[in-house]
Design a protein around this nucleic acid. Structure first.
Lengths: 233, 233
DNA sequence: ACAGTATTTATCCAACGGGTTAATTTCACC
DNA sequence: GGTGAAATTAACCCGTTGGATAAATACTGT
C-alpha cells in the first residue's frame, strides 16, 4: 500500500510548542492552582501530547515555576515603560495606581498565580534566581517619585516606597482577587463597569489625599452613602 | 485467651470528634487548598478514621464549606464586639484597622481559606445561606461611623462603607497573605516584629490622613526613605 | 541520498486519593 | 444484664494522575 507520505502528519515547531505549552499552563495553574492543575489538560489545551511537557520544560513543578517567572517578568517589564520620572509626583502616583489596577484587571491569572505561590509559602520563588534581581529598579523608581514629591512640597510626607507600593497593590489586588467572595457577601457585582470605575477613583483619591493632604474632587465626589440599602445595583 | 474487655479501645465523643475534624480540616485546607488537601491527613490529624469525616460531616466539599462558614462566623462575631459606636469616628476607624490587622495575623488560615474560595470563584459560598445574611449589620456599623464622622466634621469626605472596608481589609490582607512572595521579592522579612508594627502604623496613618485630611504623627514619622538600600534588615 | 538528531505520538503503570462496604465496639435505655 | 442504635474501625474499590518507555516521524547538514 502507498504510504501517503505527502500528507504531513505534523510539523516541527519547538519554539511555538513551548509557548503554547507555557500559555496553556498559565491558564491551567491560574484556574486550578498548583495541586488542582492537570497535566493532561495543559497538554490538550496546548494542542500537544503530555510527553511534550516533559520534553520541553520538565515536570509539573518546573513548568509551574517557569510560568510564574514569566508572569513576574511581564508585569515588571510593562511597569518599566511607565516613565514616571517625567511626571510631577502626584500624577506619577496616580498613573502607577491606574496602571496597576488595569494590569490586574487585564491579567487575572497573575493574581491567581501569586496566591498559589503564597499558598506554597513562596517555596518555588525562593529557588528562582531570575526573579529576585528584577525588583530593585522598580523600588528605586518609586523612591525617586516620593523623594521628588517631598522636595517639591507636593507630598507632605515621606513614605517608605515598599510600604507605599504594597498599599497600592493591595488596594487593587484584594478587590480583584477576592471579588468573587466579596460580591457574594456584600450582595453586589463588584466587577461590573461602574463598580470598577468607582473603585479606581476611590483608590487614587485615597492614596493621593493621604500623600498630598489635599482632597481630590474624585474622592469627595465618590458615590458615598449610596442609600440606606447597601445593595447599590 | 482472656478478652481483656476492661481496656477501652476508644470512647464515644461525637461532638468532640466533630470539632476535632473541623479544626483539622481548617488547618489542612488552609495549608494546601481545596485540591491539595488530603482527606487522610485530616482524619489522621483529627485522631480519627477517614470514615468518620463522611459519617459526621459529609464529603470533602461539604467539609470544606462547613469550615469556610465557620471562619466567616468567627470573624464577624468578633467584629461585633468592637463597639465602634461609642468611639469618636477617627478612633473607631483606627480601631477597626487595628482589629482587622491583628485578626488576620492571629488567624492566617482565614486568609488562606478566602483565597482558596476565590480560586473556586466562590462557588461554595454561593450555595451557603448562612453567610450572606451576616454582613449587612457589619456594613451598617461602618456606615454609621462614617456618617457620624462627616457630621462631626472629623471626616471631610463621605465614603461608601463597602469601599472603605475593602480598602482597610485589602491593606492588611495583601500584605499578610502575600508576605511570602513579597518578602522574597523585596528582600526583607515582612513578618518580623518591627515590620509588622510599621505596617500597622502605615495603614492607620494612610486611611486616617485620607479621611480627616490631617496628617498623623505616625504617618509623618514613618521610617521613610530608610536608606538608599531598600533592604532594611 | 543518507545518517543522525530533534520532535512528536502511542501506550503503559504504579501510586495515590476519594469514597464505600461491612464488621466491630460502645453506650443509653429498658 | 441485654438489646438496639450510635459511633468507630479496618479493609477494600476503582478511577485518576503524574510520570516513564519505546517507537515513529520530521528535519538538518553533508
Amino acid at each position: 500500500m502507498a504510504k501517503a507520505k505527502r500528507i504531513l502528519k505534523w510539523q516541527r515547531d519547538p519554539a511555538g510548542m513551548r509557548l503554547r505549552i507555557l500559555e496553556a499552563a498559565k491558564q491551567e495553574f491560574a484556574a486550578y492552582g498548583l495541586a488542582g492543575a492537570r497535566v493532561d489538560r495543559i497538554a490538550a489545551a496546548a494542542g500537544a501530547n503530555k510527553r511534550m511537557l516533559y520534553y520541553h520544560v520538565g515536570n509539573k513543578e518546573d513548568l509551574y515555576l517557569e510560568v510564574l517567572e514569566g508572569a513576574y517578568e511581564k508585569i515588571r517589564a510593562e511597569e518599566r515603560t511607565l516613565d514616571l520620572e517625567h511626571l510631577d509626583p502626584p500624577e506619577a502616583i496616580g498613573r502607577l495606581i491606574d496602571f496597576t489596577w488595569n494590569y490586574f484587571l487585564r491579567n487575572p491569572e497573575f493574581l491567581a498565580l501569586l496566591n498559589t505561590e503564597n499558598l506554597a509559602k513562596a517555596k518555588h520563588l525562593k529557588r528562582s534566581t531570575k526573579v529576585k534581581s528584577m525588583h530593585s529598579p522598580f523600588v528605586e523608581m518609586i523612591r525617586t517619585v516620593v523623594t521628588r514629591g517631598v522636595e517639591s512640597g507636593d507630598f507632605r510626607v515621606a513614605v517608605d516606597p515598599v510600604q507605599l507600593y504594597i498599599s497600592i497593590a493591595g488596594l487593587a489586588f484584594f478587590y480583584l482577587s477576592n471579588s468573587a467572595t466579596l460580591s457574594v457577601i456584600f450582595g453586589r457585582d463588584l466587577l461590573k463597569k461602574e463598580a470598577r470605575d468607582e473603585r479606581l477613583e476611590h483608590m487614587i483619591a485615597l492614596v493621593l489625599a493621604a500623600l498630598t493632604g489635599k482632597s481630590t474632587a474624585a474622592f469627595v465626589g465618590a458615590p458615598a452613602l449610596p442609600s440606606l440599602e447597601h445593595r447599590v445595583v
